[in-house]
Amino acid sequence: MMSSRDSILSQIRQNKPEEVALPAVTTFASNFANTEDKFREMLAAIYTEVIVVKNLEELAQKAEALYQGIVNRATTIPALSAWADFSLNVSDPHELETVEIAIVQAEFGVAENGAVWISDQYLPHRVLPFITQNLAFVIPRNALVDNMHQAYVRLQDTLGWGCFIAGPSKTADIEQSLVIGAHGARSMVIFLLEDE
């Protein structure tokens, strides 16, 4: 007897339509007047604050001011190690359940939708940006692309795992009323780092 794999494939071969080519055009340019302005505009609409910082020193000051009085602060950024009080050096990701705020280095942002790309390359644990109660990303100020087509030009390899994250977690499953903080982060801040 044929395996399910082979019987599915053979039925597909028998039933598939005639050969066609891929469409010639599958990418488009967005031509925003100002990419960063668009990025900010999209993030404002999804309850995300964008803060420009000149250098890592200013980042540390801003982090201190913004998350005053919060315990269980974690970060992947060495310059913030004095600010953090929670070590990400754990073997079991379940131990991250008490993280209140994580400030995490990420790769780049997308202006058309406010999404930021984060991947295995920047994270000791994949669950960190989801399990933390509050999330902040730090990306270079010049690391912004206009749209998703450009994003995938940049992302030749998505690594083992990666994610576009646009704003805090949300749901509108109860009578279409928007509620921020479904299962993931309850708040999101994006630091645009000028230096480097």
Binding site: T26, T27, M42, I46, V110, E112, N113, G114, A115, S119, F130, N147, M148, H149, A151, Y152, V153, L155, T158, L159, G160, W161, G162, C163, F164, I165, A166, G167, P168, S169, K170, A172, G184
Partner: peptide
């Protein structure tokens, strides 16, 4: 992979009017 650009631009806008869903998670390994 580049075709994700086309589909992720269409999916959430068509579904709820959002420019993209909050999370678009790319699993590989």
């Amino acid at each position: 992979q580049e075709h994700l650009g086309v589909f992720l631009r269409l999916l959430a806008r068509s579904a709820t009017g959002q420019p993209i869903t909050t999370y678009s998670s790319h699993f590989k390994k």
